[in-house]
Design a protein around this nucleic acid. Structure first.
Lengths: 378, 378
DNA sequence: CTGAAAGCGCTTACAG
DNA sequence: CTGAAAGCGCTTACAG
């Protein structure tokens, strides 16, 4: 039914090989043959079958993007970063929402392997080190975006979460707050853990012993933040300020505070993490630690592309993504491929977090000028 | 390198055919053979190659999801609706952001055809009727989600946008506002057009002639709403109320209003459309017309699945997605397939919009009770 | 119930 | 520079 390369070959009066060559821009095809082929392709409305191509080339030109929930405003920006870059290299990205559940994640990874994706970007990882190691052994390249896995060698892009948590808390301390609570992210998530570490570090620097009662567990969601805040508000000594592990948590906390008839920052100061778009709204003006979300996505994509090319080289196929590669290894190295593998060492790209001072931290109450322009008029 | 069905066959001491049969759950395989195969699969860590399978079955178990921008909070929810349902049928979804640009859309559609996706869901359509017709002829099933194409036969799920626009405007009229402006969506988008129609209809019912100066063009984005509002505010007779074509537009308008030092709803009332998550925040409380976003996505996915199965039946392959199908046609109909095609007529599923009254419309100023519970405590 | 063989639509050495 | 042939890893009639 669909027109194949065979049909094109017949129509153009050449062999399938020739058609394939002009389609793949192999240089050594004479001009008039090329034109005849192109004309036939045009007339028949031929579109190559990527499945057939992939079967022989061993690359699907597709990657998987795993995240906990695209509905959390942090992820769409990362996803765009990934997708925009991937599109430049004619890759497609498969969307996988796991809700942070390891079974869902495992199921998706399995499906992705069946599809023979060329790689996977984990924006949320629940699989253990053993599963990840197995994935590596299978030869599926992957990179972590915004997450880390201490003690496990992988390419990753991440913001310095300890520093970010430190900055956020330090800012509150410098504003004079002392009873600073922390609503954490989900347990077992590196970013959450690191932000808390930064929080504790800042307190210690001010010789404050972090009171365990001030650390309440959240899960990076709005409801999580809401519930945690409710709990904090019900305690006898209400905190003066909150450092929420991410913006959605902060928004949830804000809801809870408002519901109690309290005001932010007059009654309780609030700082988040991520700088999602809604943080800058006039009616919110959340002070937060910004992460370069789009860049995290696009850098992760770039790292993955490099690994994919590397894998292809190893297999003796030359990558097409040269533009995205960090050159490494000469031809003489590659020759020895069988005796030794010259894999580029894993890269950890750590981006700096950036404290964005708005209204909820209460700095303006002290006449501190907000150093950030949020107007849309530019 | 990777283990194939051949390896499994050898390890289990059976033929490839048998392996294939147990993997595809063909019933007629004896128990002990099945077990031997399963054991070999397990031991070798075999994962079927979906590209090879797709090459022979002519189905990729992948669909494309086209949207303008996942960064607009409306889309993630639709996307989850699509993805969650598709996952149940072992389908993957490819994410495509077009920014509402027809070239990008065309490029993605081409890529999706190469990948031989089993279908496409358009959550934003910029392609003209001719291109869409060509797509149809190619045999690629597709459905529209949240968009319509007047005069073109396609399966679609949509909210009644005229009604929604009417409800929003009527509500403002009933509250006593008369100078009601409208910030539209992008030109050429059915949903935008229909909402405006609803707006005009409501005004007419109150014998008000919609003043062209009150209708300002937006583009469904926050900046678009912001700029449009700035323009409205610079006119000599400031409007009393605004009906924004969607929530992001409303949020942008809100920013502009705040920037001018005006208050919502005291100085200007505001109603949006979509009911994106941030609309319900305490600090925003945007009155809006809710669309069932998740359902739009999942219903679209269901419709698409039905079409895909239909296409397979036509090709003489039996669909596996029976559960999602509306049963139609008996065996005797299918037999005649060659002489006549019994395509199910296209379905237009129109969902009701729901006015959600919160704070920005100013109803509470008149002591009208808000009929909607937004607390997260439930 | 099981296997051998053909075929899906490409690419890629291998000859020429 | 070009073509014939093999092969990628599956599924599916077709025999038996």
């Amino acid at each position: 039914m669909a027109v194949t390369i065979k049909d094109v070959a017949k129509a153009a009066g050449v062999s399938k090989s020739t058609v394939s060559r002009v389609l793949n821009r192999v240089p050594c095809v004479r001009g008039h043959m090329r034109e005849r082929v192109l004309k036939a392709v045009e007339e028949l409305g031929y579109t190559p079958n990527a499945m057939a191509r992939g079967l022989t080339t061993k690359r699907s030109k597709t990657i998987g993007l795993i995240m906990s929930d695209i509905t959390n405003p942090f992820f769409p920006e990362v996803a765009r970063g990934v997708e925009d870059l991937m599109k430049d290299y004619n890759y497609n990205v498969i969307l996988c929402n796991t809700d942070g559940r390891s079974e869902k994640e495992a199921a998706y990874v399995k499906l992705l392997i069946e599809k023979r994706v060329d790689g996977i970007i984990f924006t949320s990882v629940r699989m253990g080190v053993t599963d990840l190691t197995a994935l590596k052994k299978r030869g599926v390249p992957f990179v972590l975006a915004g997450r880390a896995l201490p003690g496990f060698e992988v390419d990753l892009v991440i913001v310095d979460n300890v520093l970010g948590g430190f900055q956020a808390t330090l800012h509150l301390l410098e504003l004079g707050y002392r009873r600073i609570a922390h609503i954490t992210g989900p347990p077992g998530v590196s970013a959450a853990h690191d932000r808390q570490e930064g929080y504790e570090k800042a307190l210690k620097q001010f010789h404050i012993n972090p009171d365990p009662a001030w650390i309440v567990e959240g899960d990076f969601t709005q409801v999580g933040g809401y519930r945690a805040m409710k709990r904090l508000l019900s305690s006898d000594r209400r905190p003066e300020a909150i450092f929420a592990a991410n913006d959605m948590t902060a928004i949830g906390a804000l809801e809870a505070i408002c519901e109690e008839g309290l005001r932010v920052p007059e009654d309780i100061a609030l700082v988040g993490f991520d700088d999602i778009p809604l943080a800058r709204l006039h009616t919110i003006q959340l002070t937060t630690v910004a992460q370069p979300k789009y860049e995290i996505g696009s850098i992760a994509a770039r790292l993955l592309l490099e690994r994919i090319d590397e894998g292809l080289e190893e297999a003796g196929i030359s990558g097409e993504t040269e533009g995205a590669r960090i050159k490494h290894g000469g031809a003489e190295q590659r020759r020895e491929r069988t005796t030794q593998r010259f894999k580029r060492p894993t890269q950890s790209i750590v981006l700096p977090p950036r404290l964005v001072i708005r209204r909820t931290c209460g700095s303006y109450l002290q006449g501190i000028k907000v150093g950030y322009e949020d107007s849309l008029s530019l």
